[in-house]
Structure formats: structure tokens, C-alpha cells
Amino acid sequence: MRGYLIGKVAQALLTLVFVVVFNFFLFRVMPGDPAALLLRGSAAFNPDTLEQVREDLGLDEPLPAQFVTYLGNTVALDLGDSFFARGRSVNTVIAERIWPTLLLVGTSTIASAIIGLIIGIYGGWKRGSAFDVGSLGFTLFVYSMPEFWFGILVLMAFAGGVGPFPAIFPTGGYETPAAGLTGLAHWVDVLNHLVLPFFVLTVAYLGEYAIIMRNSLIDIMGDDFITTARAKGVREKHVLWRHAVPNALLPTMTLTILSLGFVFGGAITIEYVFSWPGLGWLTVQAIDAKDFPLLQGLFLLFSGAVIIANLIADLLYAYLDPRVRAG
């Protein structure tokens, strides 16, 4: 078991290293001069300033030297300065915006997973039933829908108010601006703003979890020990929850955590639609401003989060499955 754990951690570290290296080459080797991009459209765009900026960014060094500097900086978590938030480091900018994303993605992922898994369990258990067919159809439909489009429609319906739909939620943002609320009132306000993006993000991804669990459960139900459980006189309810589900949960869990990468993608567009001031919206703003250090930092962060999530999934699986624990 220990060998397994060490192996998985090593793999994760290796992948992380790959991402860091990839990040470096991406921005240094891409077409275009970063200094020119930075100064583009500014009055200071002249050969001297360009030279100065290049020196500041370390672009006048030979490539290998740049790489070493880059590595050193990254390990020290120095991700450089943001372009568009003049003079402030990438770290600061990210730190300011990370909490709203954690709040939104955290809560919606938990809700999505729980609801999705339960739908998957009942769908798989009553395979072919109206519920199963209905939930599969619903999942398919939601899967085919761009999640941001769904977000836009929800925003239009419940915040903008159109046709029969009431405008009962704010049109975006994290809190009512300039309201100066504190304590409980503040949290209620935040919650009010959270409802719509939370709803959209939850619905958008619960189908994935449902299908993963459904297929896993159907697989398990074909196994002999389910017949044994029934033969022993176990109630159907317990056959499902005490025998089938624990076995179906193991592979489901891994696949579920692996789909976290997609949730991040959804977070980017949904935050943008709802002006939710998290890392997702920050990414879109960084695209517009061509703020490469920031984009680089965000990419590193997103990739790192997914890599770590995968590692956690592997470790959790190893802990929960007695077969892996033993050998």
C-alpha cells in the first residue's frame, strides 16, 4: 500500500512539474513580444521604454537563464506582477478573488454530487423505469447545453424578469454595492447573490455524476453477491444501500473527482455571466486585458487544483477499498 501511495504522490508531482515547464515555454516561445504587448497602446511605446521593460521582465537573458529564474520564482510562489492591475503581484490579485470561487464552486460541487449520485442510484436501481428514462433524458439535454447559456437564461428569467418570470434575484455580483452591510445581514445578502449562479452550476453538472453512478451501480447489480444478499433475506432497500451502493461508490468517487476539471471550466463562464468576483471572472478579465502573468498564474492554479484533487481521489480510493489497502 505504501508503494502505491508513494507512486501516486510522485506521479502528481511529476505532472505538476510538467505543467510548470509547459507554462514557461508557452509564454516565452509564443509569437509576439511580451514587452510590446504590455506597452501597446500606451504613450510610452518607444524603443527605450521597450528595452527597459524587456530588462525588467528578464527577457534580455538567454532562454536557459530565464528558465532557471522562472523555476526559482515559481517554487517561491512568486508569479510575477499583473499587467492590468498595475504593479500588484499576481499573488495578491488571485488572493483577493479566491474566496468567492471557493464559496461558489465548493457549495455547488457538493450539492451537484449529492443530488447527482442519488439520481444515479435510483436510476440504476430501477433501470428502464420512467424515472430512469426521464433522468437520462434530462441529463442528456443538460449535457448538450452550454452551461453559460443556461446561466444567461436563468439570469434573464429570475434577475432581469421576462414574460411570466419574476425578477427576484440580483443581476450579478457578490453583494449589494455600497450597502455597507455587516454580520448576518451581509451574509444573507451574499447568499441572495449566490442563489442563481449556485443553481446553474449545480444543475449543469449533476448529470455527469448521475450517469457515472448509474453505470457503476448497474455493473455491480450483475454481481453474484447481490443475489446472495437477497437470498439471505435482506430487504431490497438494504440490498441497495448496504450491499450495492458501497461497492458502486468506489469507482464512482474516482470518476467524480476527475470531473472536477470540467467544473472549473464551468466556473469560469458562470462567474462571468453573473459577475461573480471570483477567479473565473478574473480569468475572463485577464483575457481581455491580455494580462499574461495573471493568466499564467491562473492556469497554474487551476491545473494544480485538479492535479491535487486527482491525488486526493486516488488516496481516498486506496483508503476505502479493502482490496487496495491490503496489497
Partner: peptide
């Protein structure tokens, strides 16, 4: 039926390979 299962008649299945719950 549930009461009779196992207490009235029980079964020894073939291939106990998969007839036992792997995680209990």
C-alpha cells in the same frame, strides 16, 4: 418470503469468487 429465505432454506452458491460482498 424474506423470513423464510435463509431460515427455511439457504443456498451455497457456485464460484464463491463473487458471491461474497468484497467490501465487508
Amino acid at each position: 418470503l424474506r423470513a423464510v429465505r435463509w431460515a427455511g432454506a439457504s443456498i451455497i452458491f457456485q464460484g464463491a469468487m463473487h458471491a461474497l460482498n468484497p467490501v465487508r
